[in-house]
Every structure is written in structure tokens, then in C-alpha cells.
């Protein structure tokens, strides 16, 4: 059932580190799992023309983003023999050093879990309509573009 139902991906603000610990704890009863792979995206204090990024404010075309997240999930479950997968992405302001993306894949064996996790991250960066305003410490801003 895990893969059929669209899941809520967006969270307001930074993803608290406790959520990662809690997610791991939640999987300890699933004893068919032998490997988890976790990706955490963290806001980097990039420097542009001598000014450092202090935060990124995320926005999204939410209805389409939820649909694309679901399509990525469906594709991942048909490509990889994963037990489960969880994705969380921030909306709103996330300060440097805080977490904005949490991808968590689980499988019986490590390679599948790792490959699926990488697949999710690359697909999310390429296909989901999420936009990021990089706010500098002096309150000016520029718009982030994924490399």
C-alpha cells in the first residue's frame, strides 16, 4: 500500500534533525529491511560578490509538485526493489546549516537502497517545480538555479 497513496512531502520551514532519528526508529519493526539509505540536503552559505547566503526561501507550484513527487515515487518502486521510501522537502525559509531535503529509502540490501536514494534525489532536482530565493545577510536576494 505504501507506494500507491500520494504522500505529503512538503513541510513548512527546516526539517528538524529529530525527524530523521524518528524515521529510523519507525522502521525498526520492519525486519525484512536490511539497509537504509538517507540523503540530507543542507543549506550552504554560498558567497556571491562578497556576500554570504543566510537562508533560502522555498516556494513551489504545489499541486504540480505533489503530482511529480508521486510520479517519481511510482517510477522508483517499479525500477528498484525497495521496501519503502519517504521524501520530505521544505517550503518557506530555511537558514544555512539547516535541512531542506530528506530522502529515506529502505531495501533488503544496500545497493538497491543506495541506488534508489540517488535516483530520488536526482529526479527531484530535475523535475519538481520548486523555486529557491537565496537571501543574503543584507536582505538582498537572488534566485537559485540547480547545477
Amino acid at each position: 500500500m505504501d507506494k500507491k497513496k500520494p504522500k505529503k512531502v512538503f513541510v513548512q520551514g527546516a526539517i528538524p534533525p529529530e525527524k530523521i532519528a524518528q524515521s529510523i526508529a519507525n522502521h525498526q519493526s520492519k525486519t525484512n529491511i536490511g539497509a537504509h539509505s538517507i540523503f540530507l540536503g543542507q543549506i550552504r552559505a554560498d558567497e556571491v560578490n562578497g556576500k554570504a547566503v543566510g537562508a533560502i526561501e522555498y516556494s513551489a507550484y504545489e499541486e504540480m509538485a505533489e503530482k511529480v513527487f508521486h510520479e517519481i515515487r511510482e517510477a522508483a518502486f517499479s525500477k528498484f526493489d525497495i521496501t519503502c521510501a519517504h521524501i520530505y522537502h521544505s517550503l518557506g525559509k530555511v537558514k544555512t546549516g539547516e535541512l531542506c531535503l530528506f530522502v529515506f529509502t529502505s531495501s533488503a540490501h544496500r545497493k538497491i537502497a543506495i541506488d534508489a536514494c540517488t535516483y530520488f534525489v536526482e529526479e527531484i532536482k530535475a523535475k519538481v517545480p520548486i523555486f529557491g530565493k537565496e537571501i543574503f545577510e543584507d536582505e538582498t536576494h537572488q534566485w537559485k538555479v540547480n547545477k
Binding site: Y58, A60, Y61, L101, V121, K125, P129, N146
Partner: peptide
């Protein structure tokens, strides 16, 4: 929808 470059993650 008019979408600028994506910047998720």
C-alpha cells in the same frame, strides 16, 4: 504556469 529553473533539494 510559467516556471523558472527548478531549484529543489
Amino acid at each position: 504556469a510559467f516556471l523558472p529553473p527548478f531549484a529543489g533539494g
